[in-house]
């Protein structure tokens, strides 16, 4: 793998100057969507105009860390949905309890994304009697950009209108799979996941 040092030279296309020589210098480089700023990384700086025009491959781990800085997602849900999530978490592992809520939700998001759970089930569950109630409570989750993207993919696959609808549908599925039956089907797998959050 190529490693560049401060002061090394290369070439790149600068938006202002065209094909140009660049020198790798330390710079603070923001993201295009203002998610954050990657501080003090080597960047290819145009020798003519002084603008940053490239970043070397070796900076990806640091860029990734800043990119994945967590942000909060808020979902308005009926009160009993929060209860269902708590009940399911406690049933899997009584000692960890609510700390399992987020991993449990993401477990289901992932299962939907890879097709292990058919997407149509979510829509069916949302038309059930248990689904109809005013959304008076709020569930707040810290999620990464990657998770946000996966949620978006699953929203598309399920044909729903929002991540909130998806989360509601997943909680209803959790009710069917974990809370309702005496012994949940995937208990062994779920307990293994819980063990990683000890």
């Amino acid at each position: 793998m190529k490693i560049v040092k401060e002061g090394d030279k290369s070439k790149a296309v600068c938006d202002t100057c065209g094909l140009t020589s660049v020198t790798y210098r330390l710079r603070d480089v923001p993201f295009t969507d203002d998610v954050g700023i990657v501080k003090n990384i080597l960047a290819g700086v145009c020798d003519q105009c002084g603008h940053v025009v490239s970043v070397p491959r070796q900076c990806t781990p640091k860029i990734k860390a800043v990119y994945e800085a967590k942000k909060s997602a808020e979902y308005r849900l009926p009160a009993h949905f929060i209860d269902i999530l708590s009940l399911a978490s406690s049933k899997i592992d009584d000692e960890i309890g609510d700390a399992l809520s987020k991993p449990l939700l993401l477990y289901y998001v992932h299962k939907l994304n890879n097709g292990e759970i058919p997407a149509k089930i979510i829509k069916e569950l949302l038309s059930s009697e248990l689904a109809s109630a005013p959304s008076t409570k709020r569930l707040s989750l810290k999620i990464t950009e990657r998770t946000e993207r996966e949620l978006g993919d699953v929203v598309q696959k399920t044909g729903l209108h929002s991540s909130t609808e998806l989360i509601k549908g997943i909680i209803l599925k959790i009710y069917e799979d974990i809370v309702k039956p005496k012994t949940p089907k995937h208990m062994k797998e779920l307990k293994t996941i819980a063990a990683t959050f000890g």
Partner: peptide, 10 residues
């Protein structure tokens, strides 16, 4: 390398 027109393209 990765192009960066002053910013890292998300």
């Amino acid at each position: 390398d990765h192009e960066a027109r002053g910013k890292i393209e998300v």
